[in-house]
Each structure stands twice: as structure tokens, then as C-alpha cells.
């Protein structure tokens, strides 16, 4: 039997307590729950943007602390809620990650723009000229430029309008399938959870209330907490 990609053992951090679960290769895990339940805190533990106070996290069978932090973050890419693009051109953003690891080549830029459905001439556009949706696409492409195996998505469409949400979701699903990515998604939208996720993890006040296949969780919740949450949303 192969090791899980990630193993969380009784992890505690801020509000999170006693969090244990496994994430396998090519899983698409959706972390959901009410505001302040610790979703983003949990997501940031995957690439050591934050560390647990107690418990341990294993990545590919070894403690996550064994890995070089820049290398870990390269393999486990994070897309933030806001695009937070760097000043300059789209190209400056796309090559930021690859430049750190001396892996940049011009062709990669066009492949990346293609992944996120932006035309080639965007490469030389200033980031100030981009719309909100375009900025979030560039932000996604910037993370993909590092060729990560795992993609952490922190409410990646929360700042967008419906039309852009649907377009980016489609791009994402296409990408995840083409590149066999493992995905951890934090979202408020149960529709998005259903469309992108295969597994789910329901958090409330920092504790895992239910976990399993996303369909089961959303269609046949076992706990009154999750039932109440689904009724509310």
C-alpha cells in the first residue's frame, strides 16, 4: 500500500484542535465550514505558511519539517483569495517562481496563459491593465508556473462575479484533470465544492465534524451540525 501524500496527526493550531486526516494523490479535498472555523489556518499548514503547535504532519511519508521550505512550497502551490500580483508585467509574475529555481523558459509562459485561457499577447501587459478575473487567472498561472503536484486553493473565486467564477472553475477542473493534480480547496460555495471536489472535510470551531466523499457529505450528512450548516447555505 502506498503512503498517503499528506497525513495530519492530532494537529493543533490556533482554533484547530485534534485534526487528523489523510490526503491521497489526486484527491480533491474540499475544506468547508462556517466562517472562523479554521479552514484557512488548516490550508496554510500544508505548505508551512504556518506551523502546528501540537501534532505532526507527514508529506510523502516523512515529517513535513524534513523538506526544504522553498522546495516544499514549490511542490505545494498556494492560490490566495486575492490575486496579489507583483508590480510589472504579466511575464514578471509568471516567471517569479521559475526564476527562483532557475527553471524559466519562454515557452512555459505561453503554455501557462493557455492553461488559464488568456491570449498570448497578455504576456507583455501591465498588471494594472487587467480586470479582476484576469488578475486571478494570472495569479493561478503564476502558481502553476512552479509545476506543483498539489494545489491549495484558498477561496480562489470569492472576489469574482458569477460569470468569472464559472469560467475559472471550468479552467481549474480542466487543469486538475490534465495534470493529475492533488487539490485542497477552501470554499464557501457548496456548488463549487460539488463541482471541483471528490472528498470533503467539514470543520466547525476548529474540529473535524465529518469527513468522507463530497457527494455523501452534501447529500446524506450524518451529523446534525453539518445538516444545519447545509440548510443554512
Amino acid at each position: 500500500m502506498t503512503n498517503p501524500l499528506f497525513q495530519f496527526n492530532q494537529v493543533e493550531r490556533l482554533i484547530l484542535s485534534n485534526v487528523s486526516f489523510n490526503l491521497n494523490e489526486e484527491d480533491r479535498l474540499v475544506i468547508f465550514g462556517p466562517s472562523g472555523s479554521g479552514k484557512s489556518t488548516l490550508l496554510h499548514l500544508f505548505n508551512r505558511m504556518d506551523d502546528p503547535e501540537k501534532g505532526d504532519i507527514n508529506f510523502r511519508g516523512d515529517s513535513i519539517n524534513q523538506f526544504s521550505i522553498p522546495q516544499l512550497r514549490k511542490q505545494v502551490g498556494l492560490v490566495l483569495q486575492q490575486p496579489y500580483l507583483f508590480q510589472g508585467m504579466v511575464e514578471d509574475n509568471l516567471r517569479f517562481g521559475p526564476d527562483l529555481f532557475q527553471e524559466w523558459d519562454e515557452q512555459l509562459a505561453y503554455r501557462l496563459l493557455d492553461y488559464v485561457n488568456l491570449p498570448n499577447d497578455f504576456i507583455s501587459k501591465s498588471v494594472d491593465e487587467l480586470s479582476g478575473g484576469e488578475q486571478q487567472r494570472v495569479s493561478l498561472a503564476r502558481t502553476l508556473a512552479n509545476k506543483p503536484d498539489v494545489l491549495l486553493l484558498d477561496e480562489p473565486t470569492s472576489a469574482l462575479d458569477d460569470q468569472n467564477i464559472a469560467a475559472i472553475e471550468n479552467d481549474l477542473i480542466d487543469l486538475i484533470e490534465r495534470r493529475h493534480l492533488t487539490v485542497v480547496l477552501v470554499t464557501h460555495s457548496m456548488d463549487q465544492a460539488k463541482r471541483i471536489g471528490t472528498k470533503g472535510l467539514y470543520l466547525e470551531e476548529g474540529e473535524i465534524i465529518e469527513q468522507g466523499s463530497i457527494e455523501e457529505l452534501l447529500e446524506e450528512p450524518n451529523t446534525p451540525e453539518l445538516q444545519a450548516f447545509l440548510n443554512r447555505s
Binding site: M49, K74, Q82, Q87, L100, R142
Partner: peptide
Amino acid sequence: RGQLIAALSLGATPKQAAHL
């Protein structure tokens, strides 16, 4: 802060992230 977090999450060291 946002850009700095983005840079770190792309694998930048503090020095590289803080450059700008």
C-alpha cells in the same frame, strides 16, 4: 503583506520576497 505572502508561497526566501 499579500504580495509578500504570495512570494513566500511561491518558494521565495525572505530575502527574495522582501526584495521589492
